[in-house]
């Protein structure tokens, strides 16, 4: 079975359609960085964070047209660097990924005005590193065991208020309903309250542990499938589906948007509608985040 070592995406960056998709990809990334900069400035209002918002906004405006995309990407890179450095050492991992994506695009975007033919190697670097995020994410979970053994899901189901916790409780209670067992009585602790004992039943553990292991298996196997010619399409659709499931199930939209945007580089038929849809999703998520940061309802 032939394996493309650099993970060939289906996108031909020289073709008109490839160029159009890359332009949308660049627009999406610059808008995402603007959203991240605004949220960071709302949480940490300093002169630098405001400058970062300005740089990111200029990056979107200038980068929207392919003629000046390189300048826009440079501004976006500076804005993203500002967020990443400002949050150090707690810089989010997807900020590193986005820094790599923007830096690669800056490095390979043609300098001649009017030329938007990006070297295919740039696309392959972005593609391959992003696939490695899922693969290594799965390997880390295998190695550390906390997620693999269902502890992460169990604790969330037992004690959290998060979106993920709510959905896990639906799952557990669905399983309990099938078994004819009383639904979960949840005890959520605030900083000054003590959580009460809330043992999970064997069936609950089985459900949560199975879900965790299926996700780890998907994270490890799907990127490997994408690297093969025979299972590439199945792997791609599986990864998009997994990202959607994780985003809806846990509210982890940030990486889901970036990850799906990279996957769409290999799915030209979906990309036409996918990028505008992701753009709307990014703006909606940022609006919700900003509302929450300003003290409104989440």
């Amino acid at each position: 079975m032939p394996v493309g070592l650099l993970g060939q995406p289906n996108l031909d960056p020289v073709s008109p359609m490839g160029r159009q998709h890359l332009r949308w990809f660049v627009r999406l990334i610059t808008v995402k960085v603007l959203c991240a900069s605004v949220l960071y400035a709302a949480a940490t209002p300093t002169g630098f964070s405001v400058l970062g918002v300005l740089a990111a906004a200029c990056g979107v405006v200038v980068g929207w047209r392919s003629d000046h995309a390189r300048v826009g990407l440079c501004l976006t890179f500076l804005a993203l660097l500002n967020v990443a450095v400002g949050m150090w050492p707690s810089t989010l991992n997807h900020s590193f990924l986005e820094l790599m994506i923007v830096a690669t695009l800056v490095g390979f975007w043609p300098q001649r005005q009017g030329d938007d033919t990006v070297d295919g190697l740039a696309v392959r670097v972005i593609w391959c590193v992003t696939l490695s995020v899922w693969l290594w994410g799965g390997v880390h979970k295998l190695a550390h065991g906390y997620y693999l053994n269902g502890e992460f899901f169990a604790l969330a189901a037992a004690f959290d208020h998060s979106i993920l916790a709510e959905h896990l409780r639906w799952l557990v209670n669905g399983s309990r309903w099938l078994q004819g067992v009383e639904p979960l009585a949840v005890s959520v602790a605030t900083p000054v309250q003590i959580p009460m004992s809330m043992p999970l039943l064997a069936g609950d553990w089985l459900v949560l542990k199975t879900l965790a292991r299926l996700l780890v298996l998907a994270e490890v196997l799907l990127p490997l499938c994408v690297l093969t010619n025979r299972f590439k399409r199945a792997g791609l659709i599986g990864l998009v589906g997994m990202q959607l499931l994780i985003a809806i199930g846990s509210g982890e939209y940030d990486f889901a948007i970036t990850g799906t945007a990279v996957l769409l580089l290999a799915l030209p038929k979906l990309a036409r509608y996918g990028y505008p849809a992701l753009m709307v999703a990014a703006l909606a998520v940022a609006t919700m985040g900003l509302t929450w940061a300003m003290g409104g309802a989440p």
Binding site: P89, N93, L97
Partner: peptide, 12 residues
């Protein structure tokens, strides 16, 4: 695992 670009979020 959550930090420094190791992609190990949720592993611990």
């Amino acid at each position: 695992p959550w930090r420094f670009g190791g992609w190990g979020m949720y592993a611990t």
